[in-house]
């Protein structure tokens, strides 16, 4: 596993990232639904109870408690000492796990490959997090975590992410289960884990990987990215389909298998949906012919509401 540390220097945006894409996200914020562990005060609820802004509860006074937090009004009524507790708010660790296997190179019905589409989404999310002063971590998944940036909210982290996403990829087959298990180990602090992948792997392996992440206390969101022609085969014609991750080739008439293929994909998506639903994971299915930022905006608005 390669671990890359961010250098923070300015970098030119890659081709797949349009300059105006991120402007659409300027009015949005990414809030964690679950409790996240951060080092700094921020927008997100901390697992630690402290003396902060948001009142949490009362508890009996104990030796060593700061007398400033004693609720004297309550003492006046009950003749007992209670101290007020407050919920701490901290910053967010956003773990972006981008699938960079060979299957993500598919570009049939959309303008971008699935990887490029995922990269745009990852960059947008990283930008959003950086704006919120949240820490961003980025990992590339193939048959494991092939590259990883530790969580950081330092200036320049976004450029580091872009640089990593723009690197030439190694052509490897997908092993999402193993990659997510490794990611679970690397993501030490609870945060939001966003998986951007086509999820073309065995479903039980995917379920296991997602379970590992959940067990670490992360809030997991899955961005399931498909090419439009993967979701629904072309209308007609005799086509030789080649496997992106193997030597297999199949020549067939699309009309003859279109329906059966569609049913099979529906079944697969339904299985994935069940897995995510079971583990309280948001699964967001999208195809690369939709504008990525629009997909993101829709999701964040829905999530906020």
């Amino acid at each position: 596993m390669m671990t890359t540390r961010g250098r923070g220097d300015a970098a030119r945006p890659p081709d797949w990232l349009k300059p105006d894409e991120l402007e659409k996200l300027s009015s949005l914020e990414l809030r964690a639904r679950a409790v996240v562990e951060g080092f700094l005060h921020g927008l997100h609820r901390s697992p630690f109870v402290g003396y902060s802004v948001e009142f949490s509860s009362h508890r009996r006074y104990g030796p060593g408690d700061d007398l400033r937090h004693v609720n004297w009004k309550l003492f006046a009524r009950n003749r007992k000492l209670y101290v007020k507790e407050f919920d701490a708010e901290t910053n967010l660790n956003l773990y972006l796990l981008v699938d960079s296997s060979r299957s993500m190179q598919c570009k049939l019905g959309g303008a971008l490959t699935k990887f490029e589409y995922a990269a745009v989404l990852a960059a947008a999310l990283a930008s959003l997090a950086m704006k919120q002063r949240d820490a961003v971590a980025l990992g590339l998944m193939t048959d494991g975590i092939s590259a990883y940036l530790d969580p950081s909210s330092k200036p320049g982290r976004w450029e580091d992410c872009l640089r990593l996403l723009s690197q030439p990829m190694e052509s490897k087959i997908t092993a999402l289960s193993k990659a997510m298990e490794q990611a679970a180990v690397l993501a030490k602090h609870r945060g939001i884990v966003i998986v951007l992948s086509d999820l073309v792997d065995k479903t039980d392996g995917i379920a296991r990987g997602l379970q590992q992440l959940k067990h670490r206390g992360h809030e997991v969101v899955v961005f399931h990215i498909l090419d439009p022609w993967e979701r629904s085969l072309p209308r007609e014609g005799r086509i030789r389909f080649a496997d992106l991750e193997g030597p297999a080739e199949i020549t067939t008439d699309v009309e003859s298998i279109r329906t059966a293929y569609g049913k099979r994909i529906d079944t697969w998506c339904s299985d994935l949906n069940d897995i995510c639903l079971h583990q309280s994971i948001d699964r967001l299915e999208m195809t690369t012919d939709r504008p990525p930022t629009q997909v993101l905006v829709d999701y964040l608005v829905r999530r906020t509401s």
Partner: peptide, 24 residues
């Protein structure tokens, strides 16, 4: 002639296509 006139497409979800083809 119909057999010879084919387009080539690279597909990521090939495993599902194989399953379908195999079944039918």
């Amino acid at each position: 002639l119909c057999r010879w006139q084919v387009r080539r497409l690279e597909l990521g979800t090939m495993q599902f296509l194989q399953e379908v083809i195999h079944d039918s």
